[in-house]
């Protein structure tokens, strides 16, 4: 019998996912060493699976066994913070929750839109298929292909310099190479409120699903993230902005949903705490549950061509193309891990 551990160094982690435990597990502790593991000479003939903390690994994306594992968790430094631009540059193995706490310790108030599991690495979140809501927030990135080619995306909030090469790494599950460092634009958080909506109408056609968020948007109210808690029957919506705006928004939101829903307004601290709980507890559990439902499907021909070019010697044992479940509750923004 196997137990569902989240520790990738434990054989049970792999067995519970229907895979043979890896031949070797490497945990390089510097970007150079990580790069060398993927693109340098190897003492093993086994192909490699790259994992962060393993929270989003889809067993069906693994194409060859036996394999070795390279864990990025050892590369978890915050390289720099640019408070003027509101960006932070990190090594890809840093966990999302850890990064948020580090920024808070620095007295910074950056917060992105969307919610992400606290125990996932930034590189893993980006590389996972269907989780890359963070992609547009990547202002710069370095990566390396399996065939040893370094890639670096010059820092800019947006650009039009040809096809977006970041997406050979973002959303590709480590099929073509490894994300090394990432500069994230984390957005502002001047002040925040947590709005808790409750009432039977949350199950209705008019206000269930994404309709509530759309209805708020029609009144120029932008949610930073939202979370439907089925067990409590409440819908939490976080909004950011200066105080005067937040007050006006709250009054308007109350009018918009009245009398079908009740609205309770909570402060910035409640908003932060709620986010912490969702990201640390609820999202990781949901990620694990979705993983169980992922199935294999065909790999388009074009994907094989890209793989053959960027990983010509078959260094990486991952081939995207397997089907991932779409976020089923359209309700939770950012909870689509």
């Amino acid at each position: 019998m196997t137990t569902d551990t989240r520790d990738v160094t434990e054989p049970d982690y792999w067995k519970s996912r229907g895979l043979e435990p890896p031949g070797q597990v490497y945990t390089p502790d510097s970007i150079r060493a990580l790069r060398r593991r993927i693109a340098g000479p190897s003492e093993s003939s086994r192909p490699i699976v790259i994992v962060g903390t393993g929270s989003h690994l889809r067993p069906s994306a693994v194409t060859a066994e036996p394999f070795d594992v390279v864990v990025t968790r050892g590369c978890a430094r915050v390289q720099s913070i640019d408070s003027t631009s509101g960006t932070v540059t990190v090594e890809a193995g840093i966990c999302w929750g850890e990064l948020r706490h580090r920024l808070r310790d620095e007295g910074l108030q950056f917060a992105p839109n969307g919610l992400y599991p606290a125990d996932s690495t930034v590189g893993g979140l980006l590389a996972s298929a269907g989780v890359s809501g963070l992609g547009p927030d990547v202002a710069a990135m370095t990566a390396c292909t399996a065939s040893g080619r370094d890639y670096s995306y010059a820092e800019a909030p947006r650009k039009a310099a040809g096809p977006d090469m970041r997406y050979l790494f973002i959303g590709c599950e480590g099929a073509f190479g490894v994300i090394l460092t990432v500069t994230l634009a984390l957005g502002p958080r001047p002040d925040a409120r947590l709005w808790r909506f409750s009432g039977d109408a949350l199950e209705s056609e008019d206000l269930g699903g994404v309709q509530l968020i759309d209805r708020l948007a029609d009144h120029d109210i932008r949610a930073a993230w939202s979370w439907f808690d089925e067990s409590e029957g409440v819908w939490d919506v976080a909004v950011h902005g200066p105080e005067a705006v937040l007050e006006r928004w709250a009054a308007r939101a109350g009018e918009v949903v009245s009398p079908e829903l009740d609205l309770e307004v909570r402060g910035a601290e409640a908003c932060r705490e709620r986010r912490d709980v969702i990201e640390a507890e609820q999202l990781p559990a949901e990620a694990a549950e979705k993983r169980g439902r992922s199935t294999q499907s065909g790999q388009p021909e074009w994907l094989r061509h890209i793989k053959n070019t960027l990983d010509d010697s078959g260094v990486l044992a991952v081939g995207p193309g397997a089907e991932v479940p779409k976020p089923d509750s359209q309700r939770n923004s950012g909870g689509d891990s």
Partner: peptide, 16 residues
Amino acid sequence: RDHRGGEAGFRALKEA
């Protein structure tokens, strides 16, 4: 220069 090393990726997309 905007995508340093990106040409290899572009050629892979061209091949595909």
